[in-house]
Design a binder for these strands. Structure first.
Length: 772
DNA sequence: GAATGCATGGTTTTT
DNA sequence: CCATGCATTC
């Protein structure tokens, strides 16, 4: 029954072929790491186009990053050679959401009250807006922190919950504050003609609700829909995609529950289970053969992940060579760790065995990259850092962007205030004067920018002519006139110049350029960053001036770090474990495989109440391990500087899962003296001498010791929990028990919480009250 | 209204 | 340790 003749099936195993050929109906592919899922996706799309004659515009493929989309498109182009992939819709959920909103400006204005020039607020803008919302509600941003509120708002949005619905479900005072902040935040966003990341998914759904004929149009267009990294989709994404697929039902999703690492962003593995429920007629395909890594790496990864309890029992295997043992290395502190990694890399490169671009260093927190970078700096090995302080989040870049954004969307008060606060033209124009401007704007129902524009003579008549300009104090008026004049000038320039010329005018007329004249190293770097913006903008000179700015700003909002990762030859990659998802390297170093780092401290703290975060940490480590093709190094430090203080570290509990026969461990035996197997305190300054190492064949017994220490010590009398009972948890609120498993001295309980989803808890620690 | 100095607390991870 | 935010001072 299989069409074996197709060139597109060559080199694929039977299961992969089945995934390519099952073009009709719902398909769920569970694909282990390195099992060739990208291959399947690209071949499948090529097959649809070439063999089945499907026009590319009828295909929608959603990927996790724009980079993945770009690469996949290139591969498909090569596969269909010349046939053309024009019209193929490929990108992230967010870019698809924007696309829908941008393609229907009339409906968006009519149904969502959003003007076509709306901006996409990034995390920084969001935090600022949330902070303002908190202040507007007379709350103290120090107690009600913007960060926490934003994450609650985002969580609500990712299950399509409106502020009103949230207000209706409040259980605590804090819930109520959160709901009210959410409402005020939304008001601000709409007032500034702006949307946030979550809106890019939620608003299209609301639009489809209010304009069903629009949804029908998309449903008819997208005859084949594919979703990659399905395990990391959240509720809104699922709703969006299943709405689109509802007509043809040709929905093909690929994912690996074991690689779900975005739970904190509301990604929900339940989407996989729901998929089976919503499409009972689905075809399920399992890809379990790993083509990427050596046997030792695959074996270690398999054992590692099997210690998670919240998972479907699966196994990954490989027919690859056994390979070299995984190198496990204990170092005295983070500097030694970095030194070791860098000198090991130097060795790998100088022996000619590997090229720099075949090597990656991965870590849990971005902060870890700094020490490693320092170690690289004194070598001549080229490196690049993915993530960390993002380019577009640098203050000097945002300052200039604020002007561009304001010019594009005059309603954006946030950018206007940013300009006044940070650029020289705003000097002398303080809170008092701003208040006068805002009051005037509110009174006349105009954007605040008009308060400034009203202060300067106009060449062409405008509706501002009929309005009395705002009144300021003497100093305020001087400031307002200055600001108004510059902004009016830039607006004119915007009509007649290229973006690069507009950039020049901005940095000159606002006086921003002059602020970099100190000549310090730092100033030079900051100005270099600003200048990089200019070369960015130059690339838009060919674009239709009408839309160039809009396109540019959108690109800035949706770009991710990995997206701008160029395939530069000859550089070692430094990357977070999260960003490394989907990538692969011949040589991988994972640094900081320690308690409190991997797993992160927070997951350890939460573990007694909720094992979910800990299991996600383990998956994250699993993702890292499975990025490696040939060589894998795991390092940890006996002592690590954090918050300006050295503290003792312990090897990660996850290392206990890794079978001894796959590992060659190098421990600092000389520093392990205490009886309980913990690392002895190593004094600062004497570290260098203590690195004398001993080779041992097996992991140190200290790990087993450490594990024992985490057993609960106190015996507690427990209520008789049964499935079906309604319970209350201090943090998660109300829920229903779905499962109660007797454990030694305890009961493991699965609860489906109304607001926080499914959790597995230990009864002795969770303090669940039964609701009668 | 701006510059300086002190206190505070924060690091998970990102479209 | 660092960055940020606030208070004090001019």
């Amino acid at each position: 029954m299989l069409d074996q003749s197709s060139r597109l099936l060559q080199g694929l195993n039977p299961e992969q072929q089945r995934a390519v050929l099952t073009t009709e109906g719902p398909v769920l592919v569970v694909a282990g790491p390195g099992s060739g899922k990208t291959r399947v996706l690209t071949h499948r799309i090529a097959y649809l186009i070439q063999e089945k004659g499907v026009p590319p515009y009828q295909i929608l493929a959603v990927t996790f990053t724009n980079k993945a989309a770009r690469e996949m498109k290139e591969r498909i182009d090569r596969l269909v050679h010349g046939e053309g992939t024009d019209g193929l819709v490929m990108g992230t959920f967010h870019s698809f959401g924007v696309r829908v909103l941008r393609q229907n400006p009339g409906l968006v204005a009519d149904k969502l009250q959003l003007q076509p020039n709306f901006l996409i607020y990034d995390t920084g803008d969001q935090l600022e807006s949330v902070k303002r919302a908190i202040i507007a509600l007379n709350q103290d941003p120090k107690q009600v922190t913007p960060r926490r509120m934003l994450s609650r708002i985002s969580a609500a949005k990712s299950v399509l919950m409106t502020p009103e619905e949230m207000l209706g479900e409040t259980q605590t005072y804090d819930d109520e504050i959160a709901a009210r902040v959410y409402k005020e935040y939304e008001k601000q966003l709409r007032g500034n003609n702006a949307v946030d990341f979550d809106d890019l998914l939620g608003l299209p759904i609301r639009l489809f609700d209010q304009a069903p004929e629009l949804l029908e149009r998309y449903q008819e267009q997208f005859r084949y829909i594919m979703v990659d990294e399905y395990q990391d989709t959240n509720r809104v994404q699922y709703v969006l995609i299943s709405a689109l697929a509802d007509y043809y039902r040709n929905l093909f999703v690929v994912g690996d529950p074991d690689q779900s690492i975005y739970g904190w962003r509301q990604a929900d593995i339940k989407n996989i289970l729901d998929f089976e429920k919503d499409y009972p007629d689905l075809t399920q395909i399992h890809l379990e053969i790993n083509y990427r890594s050596t046997q030792r790496i695959v074996q270690a990864a398999d054992r590692l992940i099997r210690d998670n309890t919240q998972r479907i029992d699966r196994r990954i295997r490989t027919e690859n060579a056994e390979g070299e043992p995984i190198a496990l290395r204990e170092l005295a502190d983070q500097n030694h760790e970095a030194q070791f990694i860098v000198s090991e890399i130097r060795r790998l490169i100088s022996t000619g065995r590997f090229q720099a671009e075949e090597i990656a260093i991965m870590y849990r927190t971005t902060a870890q990259s700094r020490v490693i970078e320092e170690a690289f700096r004194v070598t001549n090995i080229p490196y690049r850092i993915v993530g960390g302080l993002r380019f577009y989040e640098r203050k000097e870049v945002r300052d200039v962007l604020a002007v561009l954004r304001l010019l594009h969307n005059p309603a954006d008060q946030l950018s206007l205030e940013r300009i006044i606060d940070n650029l020289p033209i705003g000097r002398g124009f303080g809170p008092k004067a701003l208040e006068a401007a805002v009051t005037w704007a509110t009174l006349h129902q105009r954007p605040t920018i008009d308060a400034f524009l009203a202060m300067v003579p106009r060449a062409i008549p405008s509706d501002l002519d009929d309005i009395e300009p705002p009144t300021f104090s003497n100093q305020g008026r001087a400031g307002a006139e200055r600001i108004g004049k510059v902004l009016a000038g830039l607006r004119e320039k915007q009509q007649t110049s290229t973006l690069a010329e507009l950039f020049d005018a901005i940095v000159h007329d606002t006086g921003y350029r002059q602020t970099f004249n100190e000549g310090t190293e730092e100033d030079l770097q900051r100005w270099a960053n600003v200048s990089e913006l200019r070369s960015d903008l130059e690339r838009y000179d060919q674009v239709d001036p009408e839309v160039a700015l809009a396109q540019y700003l959108e690109q800035v909002s949706l770009i991710a770090d990995v997206d701008s990762m160029e395939d530069d030859r000859g550089q070692v990659t430094l990357i977070t474990l999260h960003s490394a998802k989907g990538l692969e390297y011949p040589v991988v170093f994972i640094a900081g495989v320690e308690e409190n780092l991997l797993p992160i401290r927070r997951a350890i703290d939460e573990e007694p109440f909720d094992k979910t975060p800990m299991e996600e940490e383990r998956r994250l480590f699993y993702v890292g391990v499975t990025r490696a093709e040939k060589l894998l190094y795991l390092t940890y430090a006996a002592s690590r500087m954090s918050y300006g203080q050295y503290s003792q570290g312990a090897p990660s509990r996850f290392l206990q899962s890794i079978p001894a026969e796959t590992v060659k461990a190098v421990t600092r035996q000389s520093s392990r003296t205490s009886a309980n197997g913990r690392l002895s305190g190593v004094q600062k300054g004497r570290l260098a001498q203590s690195v004398s190492t001993t080779y041992t064949a097996a992991p140190s017994p200290s790990w087993a010791e450490a594990a024992k220490a985490s057993e609960p010590a106190v015996k507690v009398e427990l209520p008789d929990y049964q499935a079906g009972m309604r319970v209350f948890h201090a943090k998660f609120g109300e829920g229903t028990i779905t499962e109660a498993l007797p454990r030694r001295d305890d009961i493991e309980i699965a609860v489906s919480f109304k607001l926080h989803g499914d959790k597995r808890l230990m009864a002795s620690l969770a303090k669940l009250d039964i609701i009668e």
